[in-house]
Design a protein around this nucleic acid. Sequence first.
RNA 1: GUGGGUGUAGCUCAGUUGGCAGAGCACUAGGUUGUGGUCCUGGUUGUCGCGGGUUCGACCCCCGUCACUCACCCCA
Length: 418
Amino acid sequence: MQTIRGFRDILPEKILLWQKVEKEATQLFTAFGFKEIRIPIIEKTQLFARSIGEATDIVEKEMYTFADRKGEKLTLRPEGTASIVRSYVQHKMYASDPVRKFFMIGPMFRRERPQKGRYRQFYQIDVEVFGVESAYIDSQLIFMLNELFARLGLTDLSAHINSLGCPECRPDFQKALLDFLNSKKDHLCENCLRRMNKNPLRILDCKGTTCKEALKDAPATLDHLCKGCEDHFNTVKTSLKEQGVKFIVDKTLVRGLDYYTRTAWEIQTTALGAQSAVAGGGRYDGLVKEVGGPSTPGIGFAIGFDRLVEIMEQMDDIPKEEPLDLFIIALGDAAMEKGYHWSCQLNQTGIRTEIDFRGKSLKALMKRANKFDARYVLIAGENELTQDAIILRDMNTKEQVSFSSETLMPELTNIFKK
RNA sequence: GUGGGUGUAGCUCAGUUGGCAGAGCACUAGGUUGUGGUCCUGGUUGUCGCGGGUUCGACCCCCGUCACUCACCCCA
């Protein structure tokens, strides 16, 4: 038996990096005022279809969708934003506080062909803000994201930003785009032609070589922004600069989800081959209303946790297991019984202690203590028990001292207190 | 969804025009009867990814399948 395609186990040997990222992210986001939220990994299919967009690749061909036993159409979440928006609306969170800031860490599911940095179950660190229209929040999120990567020691990342406009300037742009597309109709692939009616913006994202060529001079949203969007984007840019965040304006950056408005961005890397995006996000001012809440601005981003970890694995900065405080070697039944109680007591007080119950030889156990990188070894055999002198060996200095069983516990807690 | 590469011990990998399946690491036991990290000696481990086919005989050739991997695509 084995895991199904694109799914994988994250084994204890690999977990330290994951925990490090979670810890850093939680600390940083908390400092910025974000609260953790945990939500289901299954939702009604309709939620994703409505929010992400019917014509997107994610909804069209990548979702794990099934009917449950009563025939209800359900979907394993392919991203986090839709669910968090649903939660925000369902619990009327706007009522208690006009500004809400969340983060979430968890698995997402998309049925794509697996590749390095691309799995069918993958993990995202998701951040969302509701109720803030100001461009400073856009900028602040990018700054925070940048800071997280810096703290994790990542270099060679670049931030790409773009503005996708809003309902006010989009008709003007769409008209220009449609005019352009109609003139290139003969050079577009089937998929693009189909999308022309549904969602022409997505065509800009087509990577087919002939389409790409045909779309070289296609109009960009950036050149058709209304006054409000233009001011907004300018504020984002200047405030990023003032905070010392480097970025590249990329007018071809179109994201694969329909709900984005105004600012969109990606953090890209060259470390993972074709999977260049380590994080991506954008503003979605219409989404809360779309899902049934009051008209509320929203913005957020997601970090590809798996990709982040893979990049960090390529650096030589992999965190190591802490050395063990004490390894107890108990030889014989009587010693084993004592050793068992000692180990329980010590672990209870937070001293990292291991004992081996298998009845191995002293030499074998010394080797094992060494494998754990134990600072101290406690040796208790028949001799030590009859003489009531339990040996404590310092593994670095090789010095050995002995304690009576009565003073042993206080002495040990004293040693490890330091 | 399309195309290429790979699959042999727990791990990293050799292997043979088709003729008994290997190394290093790891694990394990010894090397003065109870003292580790180095060293020495021995030992254990395999449906050669899985299923068919060809053959006297297949880890090797053929077909299928599963998984991994790279690119396309998509995105985090």
